[in-house]
Amino acid sequence: MPANFLFYALSTVTLAAALGVVLNKNAVASALSFFVCLCGVAALFVMLDAYLPAFLLILVYAGAVVALFLFIIMLLDMGGGDRKPLKKTTAAAALITAALLAAGVVSVLSRGKFSTEPPVPIPAGSLFTDLKLYGAKLFTTYMLPVQLVGFLLLIAMLGVIVLSKKQGEDKKP
């Protein structure tokens, strides 16, 4: 089936890119792997019929966040990434801990019953497909969260301005 093949191909690309983020010595290469990983996740979103989140993921994450990371990497001039080579024991301990985390989550999940059936087809005029309904829901049911998130963005903007001001700038005329 083409959907099966698509899922496996996309998940392979995504996981390979995620490992690239972690294992690359060069920080710029890590950021670009992160970009590929985000594109893979966005494609998986499209497979799940979540078109707006996929679009937002590309726009916000792959567009703005990765560009910001690349800017900071250039600003701090640390293309070399880690200076000292990693200790073998550190890497092994990190790997074992991550594997334990994954095993723990999987063991919890395997208690539950996941239906292996394909998802129910989406009815026409559902929130998944209709952007107008999505917007209507955001501005009726989720009005308060939208307002709060707007304030959060404003506060984050102010915080970034305060943080990136040069120290002792006020004393100079």
Partner: peptide, 20 residues
Amino acid sequence: TIGLHHFISLAVVLFAVGFF
């Protein structure tokens, strides 16, 4: 067919890679 558990497993592995 691709079920829910495929996507959840992928998410768990992705999370573990990030944690690593």
